[in-house]
């Protein structure tokens, strides 16, 4: 009896499955958008289709995408992190100044920076879960404090608004290789951040879809009370997500440091919104519980294509923000519409 019942269930499954599965993917809207943006710039910017241009687009997408991945995970888990942008700068500043002041091997600074960014993640997470205040408020506070500390400590220690050069210090070459090297394939130069980005997307996708932690992330964002009631460690999951943002900020920050050698202490303000935009364009539901890491990558790619495409089309780059805003609205509407359709088809 069970067998027959299962058979009929399977038959019905086959009828609707393919289309519905496609429509049910969170990143569908963003993929459609990415194809449209790509086609647009292929038509309007002659040099856009060159391999070197595409490598540049990927590089722009990767520096953003490295942060968009943990920010997307956090959003799926139901929270924001407005401190993510300046945290990248903090990561670079801590690494640079620690090595320089202690005249230590730069790897020491790199390690200290990792501990510091993770600790800031823990701080955000613990404050959030202890106080039960909205993450918007908590991380807005962290954002302002970090912005002030970046400027204040840099001036206190270096005497100027930027850090000293550390390129002649021990270990710099190795760290540069890891975080900021260029790989040549054929005659095209690819930045190593692209690999970091792809790696993070792969790991995050694995975590989201194939581990218990992933199940918990979706549950925390989708219905926190239900998750807690069935025994999901909501507090630990949220703290872990903020530590993930810390990890992303560490990678992005070290790239910043080892590709430019010095760090401007005022950088990073405003980037937190761009990470959030990439995640939302990629299909993450702003209220949590829905989205994907791949989607955030597509969102970052749209960002990269738009920012560089405007340059290749030789338009005034001032128009970039306008395009980004229009893209955000269109993608969100498309995602909304697709999700409605997907649910109605059931």
């Amino acid at each position: 009896m069970t067998a027959t019942a299962q058979k009929t269930a399977d038959e019905r499954l086959v009828e609707t499955s393919a289309l519905r599965k496609l429509l049910g993917r969170p990143e569908l809207g963003s993929v459609v958008g990415a194809v449209a943006v790509f086609a647009f710039f292929v038509v309007f910017a002659d040099s856009f289709l060159r391999a070197s241009s595409l490598a540049t687009v990927l590089y722009a997408a990767s520096t953003l995408g490295i942060m968009a991945v943990p920010v997307a995970l956090l959003m799926i888990g139901g929270e924001f992190d407005l401190s993510a942008g300046v945290l990248v700068t903090s990561s670079a500043l801590i690494s640079s100044m620690f090595s320089y002041q202690m005249t230590a091997n730069v790897w020491v600074g790199v390690g200290v920076s990792l501990l510091a960014t993770l600790a800031i993640g823990v701080f955000n997470g613990v404050m959030l879960t202890r106080t039960q205040l909205p993450s918007f408020i908590i991380t807005l506070g962290t954002f302002l404090m970090l912005t002030g500390m970046n400027l204040g400590f840099t001036k206190l220690i270096s005497g100027t608004v930027s850090t000293k050069k550390i390129s002649d210090m021990e270990g710099f070459a190795g760290a540069h290789d890891l975080f900021a090297s260029t790989l040549t394939l054929g005659d095209v130069d690819f930045k190593v951040t692209i690999l970091w980005w792809f790696g993070l997307v792969a790991v995050a996708t694995w975590i989201l879809l194939r581990t218990r932690a992933g199940n918990w992330i979706f549950a925390c964002g989708g219905n926190k009370e239900a998750a807690r009631a069935v025994g999901v460690p909501v507090t630990a999951t949220k703290i872990g997500l903020y530590m993930g943002v810390g990890l992303g900020a560490w990678i992005a920050g070290q790239h910043l440091l080892f590709s430019f050698d010095t760090v401007q202490s005022g950088e990073g303000v405003g980037n937190e919104l761009i990470y959030i935009i990439a995640a939302v364009i990629g299909g993450c539901l702003i209220t949590g519980g829905y989205g994907s890491a791949v989607g955030s990558a597509v969102g970052a790619l749209i960002f990269g294509m738009t920012s560089k495409g405007i340059v290749y089309a030789e338009w005034d780059p001032d128009w970039f923000k306008f395009f980004l805003g229009a893209m955000l609205l269109l993608a969100t509407l498309l995602n909304h519409w697709v999700r409605k359709r997907a649910e109605a088809s059931k």
């Binding site: 694995w206 194939r210 581990t211 218990r212 992933g214 199940n215 918990w216 979706f218 549950a219 989708g222 219905n223 009370e225 239900a226 998750a227 009631a229 069935v230 025994g231 999901v232 539901l285 519980g289 829905y290």
Partner: peptide, 29 residues
């Protein structure tokens, strides 16, 4: 608050008590 509406039925069914296979970093649902 019995369930998480946007999650698939099977993920909801096992939420909080998910069975896993494999070891270490390959430990998976």
């Amino acid at each position: 608050l019995a369930v998480v509406p946007l999650m698939p039925v099977w993920r909801n069914f096992f939420l909080g008590s998910e069975p896993t296979r494999g070891k270490g970093p390959l430990k998976r649902l």
